[in-house]
Simulated scan of single mutants.
Amino acid sequence: MNDPSHVRSGLWAAAGSFALWGLMPLYWHLLKTVPSLQIVVHRVVWSALFVAGWLLWKNGRGWLRAALARPHAAWMLALSGTLIALNWGLYVWAVNAGHVVETSLGYFINPLLNVVLGVVFLHERLNRVQWLSVALALIGVAWLTWQYGRLPWIAIGLALTFGLYGLLRKLLPIEAVTGLGVESVYLFLPALAVLAWGETHGSGGFFGGWGLGVDVLLVLAGVVTALPLVGFAYAVRRVQLSTIGLMQYIAPTLQFLLGVWFFHEAFDYERAIGFAFIWVALVIFAGDGLWRSRRATALATA
């Protein structure tokens, strides 16, 4: 863990993973001619084949049996797989429907929602600074709700599905890629059935006449899905979690910049006020976490 070369490679892996997640709207934009459901089921099928193949090569044929042998693993991974599929579906639809800025809001909110979930389900306690962060984020969401004239349901839906997904994965101690592999196995047959139904009913199936370039992009969607998670799993074993926690904001920041500067989505002064509350909350939250981490390290060294 303290080997500088390992830390350096971990930092690069984390930065690359978060950058890929942040730039992913560009990838889904290339597939805008394909219905969102078709993109998601292709993403599930090809990522399942990619991840299962990786685990088979790395751990042998018994990887699935060993993973499901853990107590409660079968139903918890089935539920987490459903949540991540809903998250993927909402995210892809939102990007191609012109809501990239709101998707970034969801992933800005997510760390603070994780704190609330920890309080509710894990009986964790927050200090005053953390409560202040949560309160500021709630003010920001309330302001945006008033400005939009509706609840920012895309952002909240993304944050909630991913937050609950993270909670389940925290409760079940299993390696990240192995967990994704089991989830992918659960989702593989339903996704394959959707593709088969589309193939027989003329609504777009395995490859629905979108052209060779789009077909290749659909296949590579599995790699695009799995690769950053593999990099993230590599990084967390070599880099302090406090550093990872700060680096995670690379992804929604890139999404936000793409939404405003590349996709030219509306972002006026009134919406900036709501985002500002959430950004301030994140700065306070991240600063408090970094200070506590360094203090703990200093005490441990002393």
Rank of each mutant, 00 (worst) to 15 (best):
V7R: 15
S9M: 15
L11S: 08
W12M: 15
A14H: 02
G16A: 03
S17M: 11
Y27R: 04
T33E: 15
V34P: 07
V41R: 08
A48H: 03
L49K: 01
L49S: 09
V51M: 11
A52I: 12
A52G: 11
K58G: 11
K58H: 10
A69N: 03
A69G: 11
A73G: 02
A74F: 14
L77F: 00
T82I: 15
T82S: 14
I84A: 05
V95R: 00
N96G: 10
S104I: 04
G106E: 05
G106R: 07
G118S: 02
V119M: 11
V120P: 04
H123I: 14
V134G: 04
I139C: 15
I139W: 04
L144V: 01
Q147D: 13
G149L: 06
G149M: 07
R150W: 11
A155F: 12
A159I: 01
G163Q: 06
G163R: 02
G163M: 09
L172P: 10
E175A: 14
E175C: 07
A176H: 09
L180S: 00
G181P: 07
V185R: 11
P190A: 03
A193W: 00
L195K: 03
A196S: 13
S203I: 04
F206R: 01
G211T: 09
L212W: 13
G213D: 04
A221N: 14
G222E: 07
P228K: 00
P228G: 00
F232L: 05
Y234W: 09
A235H: 10
V239N: 02
L241Q: 13
L246W: 03
M247K: 01
I250G: 05
G259D: 04
G259Y: 01
V260M: 09
F263D: 06
F267Y: 05
I273V: 15
G274A: 06
F275P: 10
V280L: 13
V283R: 05
W291A: 13
T297A: 15
L299I: 14
A300V: 09
A300T: 09
